[in-house]
């Protein structure tokens, strides 16, 4: 086993264990911080795959943005109401059926797909080719995503303003 495999298993263990903890802990703050660990582990896996830009954007968007917002909301509501928010398990049977089906589908695809493995060089830097693709081939989608985010922002602001 080479040392990169060891690093892969380290990050994979972090990701899986923390993801399990996210759904199994009762305390919602613990869930949020385990989610941070999950994002961190996934970012580590991206780095091992040579997708450095994706890894860093994952950290910026999810840890620096979304997770902070989640924590913000949970902490404020948790303390203001004066009682701790605990999550509980409800609807076990429908949930396990859905998850079982989904896991089955994913597993079936995983087993039946004829995976092609090609050995390629690690790209020295991904950001230049990504930027060219975004600005040439996928410019329309890129701009539409920008508009979508803007709509979401305006929508959030207008909901917040409504008295």
């Amino acid at each position: 086993m080479n040392i990169y495999d060891l690093i892969f298993y380290l990050f994979a263990t972090i990701t899986v264990l923390s993801a399990l903890a996210v759904v199994s802990t009762k305390n919602i703050i613990y869930s949020a911080y385990n989610l941070m660990l999950t994002f961190f582990g996934v970012a580590g896996l991206y780095v091992l795959l040579g997708a450095d830009f994706l890894a860093i954007v994952q950290l910026i968007v999810y840890v620096g943005g979304i997770l902070i917002l989640i924590l913000f909301g949970v902490m404020l509501t948790n303390k203001v109401n004066g009682m701790p928010i605990h999550t509980e398990v409800t609807n076990i049977i429908p949930a396990s059926i859905t998850i079982g089906l989904f896991a089955g589908i994913v597993l079936a695809f995983f087993m039946n797909t004829n995976w092609k493995s090609v050995t390629t060089e690690f790209p020295a830097t991904t950001i230049q080719s990504l930027g060219k693709l975004l600005m040439n081939e996928y410019i329309l989608i890129f701009e539409l995503l920008g508009v979508l985010l803007l709509i979401a922002l305006i929508g959030a602001a207008s909901i917040a303003r409504k008295q």
Binding site: I56, L59, V63, G64, I68
Partner: peptide, 20 residues
Amino acid sequence: IDLGLLFIVAASGFVVAGIL
């Protein structure tokens, strides 16, 4: 790393999470 500046922005997210 090639993305040093972005990486530093990403790292500050952990500081905020720790402070919270």
